[in-house]
Design a protein around this nucleic acid. Structure first.
Lengths: 165, 165
DNA sequence: TTGGAATGTCAACAAGGCTGACGTATCTTG
DNA sequence: CAAGATACGTCAGCCTTGTTGACATTCCAA
């Protein structure tokens, strides 16, 4: 029953192994968000602001609609976050040239500075984890995560993946 | 600069690679929680209830304090969730035998049924991802996640890991 | 017997989700 | 050109889940 298929052991698909993976995701995600959360605490911003800033940085000039579908929230929810970022001068919203209904979003220098602070912290943890686990493990890590995404999320992920930045 | 160390390429530690890992975590976590969230939608419970039910299932008889430190929330926050679960007859709270100040938490049959429904859904996605990625990748996945945890979270994770259940 | 630990609970608040409804430009298409 | 669709913003109100602070109870242990 717990035997082989094409010489490949299936022991890694037992409920027990899957459960460990689930708990690993839960505990690791806490670590994943811990450092940015700590930084944001002081600044009257939250994780939602971090996400917005991150993806605007990744895709400068992105439209509100595009950001909406990446983040998977309602426009009202995003708008609240964007408004405060724009008011505080971290994000700039420019009317579209081709289509004047669209707003294109850019980080200001201040916004870029915050982005850097947050992503430095997050990357630092990621780097330590990568280093500890090694390149082989990292490849597997990414494979499993990609297989875990919903189709639409994977679309967004792939689209970002290829940007030279 | 992007060269070798002990014959090992360090290309996997570039900012670009780390960024991909960060975004993979973000998008994958959405998939990770999507199925249970959908199930809970109807039932007037949320993710917080799922977490409580999961860990009570994993450690029957656990105390409130222990659960608190696993979940990393305040007792007031947890209490609100536990209260509704107890009122609805999904969780039973027994006064401790040794120390009567402690409450030991158990799932009722109804609670166990919900837990099963939720974890079946979550495991299904995990199983598909594992199968798609293969055992090698899964091992790496777990290694990186474990390296990403905070020390205290890893403690909890390890403690749960060894339970035969 | 007294201090502290474990638990519960009340009140108030904030972030960040959500729905619904409406307004206003601006495109697009018949 | 008129009508409909699209992109965006905004107001109002609701929910979940997190937070602090304060206080009561119960009980262990020194």
């Amino acid at each position: 029953m717990n035997d082989v298929a094409g010489g490949q052991s299936l022991l890694y698909l037992t409920d027990e192994q899957l459960r460990k993976g689930i708990e690993a995701m839960f505990f690791a995600y806490r670590g994943f968000t811990a450092d940015p959360d700590r930084i944001l605490e002081d600044k009257s911003y939250g994780r939602a602001h971090h996400r917005a800033v991150h993806f605007i940085h990744r895709s400068p000039g992105t439209t509100v609609n595009n950001l909406l579908s990446i983040l998977g929230v309602t426009k009202q929810s995003l708008n609240r976050v964007l408004r405060s970022l724009i008011e505080d001068g971290l994000v700039e919203s420019r009317v579209g040239k081709e289509d004047k209904r669209e707003r294109h979003l850019y980080l200001t220098d201040t916004g870029a500075a915050l982005e850097r602070e947050l992503s430095d912290a997050q990357r630092e943890r990621m780097r330590a984890a990568y280093r500890a686990a090694g390149p082989q493990a990292v490849a597997g890590f990414r494979q499993v995560l990609e297989a875990m995404m919903d189709v639409e999320m994977r679309r967004h992920y792939e689209a970002l993946k290829d940007k030279t930045t």
